[in-house]
Amino acid sequence: MTAQQPSPSHTLRSQRLNALTHEPHSRLDNQVKNHDPFASTERFARFVAAQYLFQYDLEKLYADKDLAALVPGLEKRCRVEQTRLDLADLGHPVPEGDESIRTRKMDVSEALAWLFVSEGSKLGAAFLLKRMPALGLSESFGARHLGEPEGGRAQGWKTFVAALDDIVLSTEQERLAEAAASAAFERFTVHLERCFA
Rank of each mutant, 00 (worst) to 15 (best):
L20Y: 08
H22M: 10
H22Q: 13
S26L: 05
S26C: 12
R27K: 14
L28K: 09
N30V: 13
Q31L: 15
Q31F: 10
V32M: 11
N34C: 05
D36V: 00
D36I: 02
P37S: 06
F38G: 05
A39W: 06
A39D: 10
A39I: 05
E42P: 01
E42G: 02
R43D: 04
R43P: 03
F44G: 04
A45G: 04
A45L: 06
F47P: 05
V48E: 00
A49M: 07
A49E: 07
Y52N: 06
L53V: 06
F54M: 09
Q55P: 01
D57V: 08
D57M: 00
D57E: 04
D57F: 07
L58C: 09
L58G: 03
E59A: 12
E59N: 03
L61Q: 06
A63K: 13
D64Q: 12
D64N: 15
D64F: 01
K65T: 14
D66M: 02
D66G: 07
D66V: 07
L67W: 02
L70M: 12
P72W: 09
V80K: 03
E81V: 14
Q82A: 15
T83G: 01
T83V: 01
T83D: 05
R84H: 15
L85A: 14
D86V: 04
A88Q: 15
A88W: 13
A88K: 15
G91P: 12
G91K: 09
V94M: 10
V94T: 08
V94C: 03
P95K: 14
E96K: 10
E99Q: 12
E99L: 09
S100H: 14
R102S: 12
T103E: 06
T103R: 10
R104G: 01
K105D: 13
K105E: 13
M106Y: 14
D107Q: 07
D107A: 10
V108C: 12
S109N: 13
S109Q: 10
A111N: 11
A111E: 05
A111L: 12
L112I: 15
L112D: 15
A113W: 12
W114S: 07
L115Y: 04
S118I: 01
G120H: 08
S121C: 07
S121E: 01
G124T: 00
A126I: 11
A126C: 02
A126N: 07
F127T: 05
L128T: 02
L128V: 11
L129D: 09
L129T: 12
R131G: 06
R131D: 00
R131Y: 06
P133A: 14
L135N: 05
L135S: 09
L135T: 05
G136E: 09
G136Q: 01
L137G: 03
S138E: 03
E139R: 05
S140K: 07
S140P: 04
F141N: 14
G142T: 15
A143I: 06
A143F: 00
R144T: 09
R144N: 04
R144W: 04
H145L: 04
L146N: 08
G147R: 08
E148L: 13
P149G: 06
G151A: 13
G152K: 13
R153L: 00
Q155T: 00
Q155K: 01
Q155P: 06
W157K: 03
K158A: 09
